[in-house]
């Protein structure tokens, strides 16, 4: 698993030090010139240029087996979609390679969003999705609220599994 952002290596090293992501390889792409631009995942308009939220499954032959680009910062695909795309490739399991940043010393930045915030953040999001979905008679709107609620529930469940809850 590879995580790409416009953060530099020191900031990514700092994030890796805080978040339990032992098999995530961090790739720094400041300016978006290396990965993000060529993948159509760079948004030059937001915050001076950052990644669009996305997930891509690349098959061993280099083809793109799955691609999801979020409509906004909170729009992410689901684990079920991702695992479905991976399982459809029919590959043997491999030992996950070690992750981490490409280099750089952790910069000591603590981050505005820390691991201890995650379950609280998504529980709050879930309740908001329930409340807002219930305010509308519009089916399309309610479907969006439901999708957001399910995303929150999946994230909370994954976090609980990771932490043995």
């Amino acid at each position: 698993m590879i995580a790409v952002s416009t953060d530099d290596e020191a900031r990514q090293a700092g994030m890796f030090a805080r978040w339990p992501t032992p098999h995530v390889r961090y790739v720094a792409d400041p300016g978006g010139d290396t990965y993000l631009g060529s993948l159509g995942l760079f948004d030059p308009e937001e915050r001076g240029g950052i990644a669009r939220p996305a997930l891509i499954v690349v098959a061993p032959d280099g083809s793109v087996a799955y691609r999801y680009v979020g409509r906004d910062f909170a729009d992410r695909t689901t684990d079920a979609e991702m695992f479905g795309a991976l399982e459809a490739l029919g590959l043997d399991a491999i030992e996950p390679p070690a992750g981490g940043p490409a280099g750089g010393e952790a910069d000591g930045h603590r981050g505005a969003f820390r691991p201890e915030h995650l379950p609280v953040y998504f529980r709050g999001n879930r309740m908001a999705a329930v409340a807002i979905g219930g305010r509308s008679e519009d089916r399309g709107f309610r479907a969006i609220a439901r999708e957001h609620r399910l995303m929150c529930e999946a994230t909370i469940a994954a976090w609980d599994r990771l932490n043995g809850a």
Binding site: I2, S5, Y35, L39, A51, V57
Partner: peptide, 30 residues
């Protein structure tokens, strides 16, 4: 996808090992 290039070694290394790659983007550690 990008062609063979040292810049893309994280992807290519996993593919050479017979694995699929999940590439995700995130908005930065603010």
């Amino acid at each position: 996808m990008p062609n063979d290039d040292a810049l893309y070694e994280p992807i290519l290394g996993l593919r050479r090992g017979g694995g699929a790659v999940v590439l995700l983007t995130y908005r930065g550690d603010w």
